[in-house]
Structure formats: C-alpha cells, structure tokens
Amino acid sequence: MIRLPIVLFFSAALFSIGVYGVLARRNGVLVLMSIELMLNAVNINLVAFSQALGSLAGQVFALFVIAVAAAEVGIGLAIVILIYRNRETINIDEVNLLKW
C-alpha cells in the first residue's frame, strides 16, 4: 500500500523539473527531453489515480499519452534536424524568424 500524496509529490517534482528544463535550456533536443519529463509526470498521476479509484481508464490513457509522446518526439526531432540543416544551430533562442 502506497499513500497517494507520496506518488503525487513525485509527479509534481518531475513536472516542475521539466518546466525548469523547458524554460532554461536553449538546445532544442534538451527542451524535448524536458517535455518528456513533464509527460511522465502526467502519466504517473494517471496511473496513480487509476489504481486509487479502481478504474482502468487511467492506465489506458497513460498508454495513449505514451503513444502521443512517441509521435511528438519523432516530429520534434525531425523539426530540430531540419532547423539544424538550414541554420547550422539548434539553439531555440536563435530561431526567431517568426518573432518580430
């Protein structure tokens, strides 16, 4: 038996670390890794509530989130590699063509 708040605290810690990574990193691949941390935090919450409430819906949707995360990484890395091919850099603060 595991008390639910412990699991939720772990998830909250992973989520805020992911937020820090997204905000502080400038390498595109590292930003994608931080996004994965946040998605994992969401999945932990889904599984924890699924087990606490006795319903399998949370686990099913955790599987869907994993599939969506795989798709997101595939597309994201394709975009990062495309940016690298065009601009010779993947620092996302230098990719500001649409900014001004």
Binding site: M1, R3, P5, V7, L8, Q51, A52
Partner: peptide, 15 residues
C-alpha cells in the same frame, strides 16, 4: 495536493 488529499485517507491498493 496537501489541500485535496488527506495524508492517510487515500491509499493505493494493488489492483
């Protein structure tokens, strides 16, 4: 989380 879930109230049973 602390506001919404009491520390001992909600436990995860292995299902």
């Amino acid at each position: 989380i602390q506001d919404a879930f009491s520390w001992d109230g909600s436990k995860i049973e292995p299902r």
